[in-house]
Write a protein that binds this DNA or RNA. Structure first.
Lengths: 234, 234
DNA sequence: ACCTGAACACCGTTCAAGT
DNA sequence: ACCTGAACACCGTTCAAGT
C-alpha cells in the first residue's frame, strides 16, 4: 500500500507472479502507456497476466474501478515544487496534472466520469487547496475553486486527446475535425452568424499554451472576486 | 436542411421510409431519449430502421460523426430569451444547454470529444459571443470566454451524467461514487491531508445550483479582468 | 449506383464448474 | 476458498456480393 509508487517499466517478468490488485493496476498502466487507454481492457489486461478476464473480477469490481485506481496511482506521482510564489507553484502543479492526462491518452475522459477520489487524489486536492489558501483566498471559495480548476484541466485534456483509438488507421481524422471547425468558423455566413463571421480570428487565435495560461488565470482571478453564497459556507 | 427542427416524437412510423441522413439522426435521437446514448449504437439504430448496420455507413462515416450530428441537431433547439440583461440572458442560455446535456445522458461526454461544430452549433456560439460583446467584453476575450464557458458546461454535465449505462442493474453505483468521495473527504487524515481535513465541509458544501451559478459567474468575472496576450489577438 | 448479409475482430460481465 | 473456461450478450466496421 505505502510501497514506492508503482514502477511503470518492468521488463523482467518473474514467471507468473501471484495475481493481486497492485499487479493488475501496474500492468494496466504499462498497457495504457504503450497502447493507449482504449486497449487497457479487462480482456487485454488479463491476457498480459496470462489468465482469463474472469480472474480480474476477484480483485476489481469493473472497468470503471480499474481506470479509477490507475488514475489515482498516477496522480500519486505528481509533486508540488518548492520554489516560487504560490501562484507559480499552483500553475506548475496544474500543468503537471495536465501533462499527465495528455501522456495517457483517453485517461482524461475517464477522469471526468470517475472523479479522482483515491488516497493519492486526496493529497493532490490538499496541495491545490493549500496553495490557494496560501494565496489568501477565502476557504469556501478556495474549496470550490479547486473543483473548478480540476474540472477545467480534465476537460481541456479530454478535448485534446480525441483520437485515442484508431490513430494508426485514421490519423487524418484529428486533423479533419480541426479543419471542420475552423473552416466552419472561417466560412461563417455573416447573415446567420454575424459575430462569428466578424470575430472568427479571435475565436481561433492563440497557441494552446496561451489559451491554457489565460484560462487558469481567469479561473483563479474570477474565484478571487466572486463570493460564495453565505448559506453554502460550512 | 432548413426544415423545422427534427421532431423528436413520431409515434406513427410510415412503413419503412427511405433511408436518409436526417431519418437516421432523428431515429438516433428517439433511441437516445428513451434508452440513453449508450444504446444509440450503429447496430441498434440500424435495427430500428429495419436494416443492417452496414447501411448506415452510406450516410454516416462512423459513430462519432453520428453523435456529433445528433448534438448539433439538439443544439438547434436552444433559443436565446429576449428579455432581461445580457448576463441574465447569457446565464439562461447556458442553463438551457446544461439542461439539454442532462436530458440526454451521456451526450455530454460525446460533446467533449467532438467539439460542437455543425451549423446549429455555429449559431449557438454566435449567440454566446453576442451576449458577451453586448456586456462590453473585449472581442478577443469574449471569444476565448465562449470556449471556456462551453467547456465548463459540457464538463459539468459529463461529470453529473456518470452512470449512462447499467442504471437498471446498478443504481447503487452513482450513490456509492458520491459516498466514496465524501467519506474520503470526511475521513481525511489530518496528518496526510491537513487542509482537506480542516476544510472538508467547504469542499462538499453548496447545492449543485449554487455551485453552477458561482462557477459561471467566476468564469465571466475572470474573463472580464484577465487580458488576452496581445500577440494572440486577431 | 445503391444497398446489405455475413464476417472479422473485438468488448464487459457472469456463473457453473473445477482445484 | 480461490480461481477460471466458457458462454452470453453485445460492440464498430468492412467488403464481397447482390439488386
Amino acid at each position: 500500500m505505502t510501497q514506492q509508487p508503482a514502477s511503470r517499466s518492468r521488463r523482467e517478468r518473474p514467471a507468473k507472479p501471484a495475481l493481486s490488485r497492485e499487479w493488475i493496476i501496474s500492468t494496466t498502466i504499462d498497457i495504457m502507456l504503450s497502447e493507449g487507454l482504449d486497449k487497457a481492457t479487462m480482456r487485454r489486461v488479463a491476457q498480459s497476466l496470462d489468465t482469463g478476464p474472469a480472474s480480474l473480477y476477484v480483485y476489481i469490481a469493473n472497468t470503471a474501478e480499474l481506470h479509477s485506481a490507475v488514475l489515482d496511482e498516477l496522480i500519486g506521482t505528481l509533486i508540488v515544487s518548492s520554489s516560487g510564489s504560490w501562484s507559480e507553484r499552483l500553475e506548475r502543479l496544474l500543468d503537471e496534472y495536465r501533462e499527465l492526462l495528455f501522456t495517457y491518452p483517453g485517461l482524461a475522459k475517464s477522469a471526468l466520469a470517475i472523479r479522482p477520489s483515491g488516497p493519492h487524489s486526496l493529497i493532490f486536492i490538499d496541495s491545490l487547496l493549500g496553495l490557494l489558501l496560501e494565496g489568501g483566498m477565502e476557504s469556501a471559495r478556495a474549496a470550490w475553486a479547486v473543483d473548478l480548476l480540476m474540472l477545467y484541466v480534465t476537460a481541456n485534456a479530454a478535448e485534446h486527446s480525441v483520437p485515442a483509438a484508431s490513430d494508426i488507421e485514421a490519423p487524418v481524422d484529428r486533423e479533419s475535425t480541426w479543419t471542420t471547425l475552423s473552416t466552419a468558423i472561417g466560412n461563417a455566413d455573416p447573415a446567420v452568424a454575424p459575430r462569428v463571421a466578424a470575430h472568427g480570428p479571435a475565436l481561433l487565435g492563440g497557441t494552446p499554451a496561451q489559451r491554457w495560461t489565460w484560462a487558469i488565470g481567469t479561473l483563479i482571478a474570477g474565484a478571487a472576486i466572486v463570493p460564495v453564497p453565505p448559506a453554502a459556507k460550512a
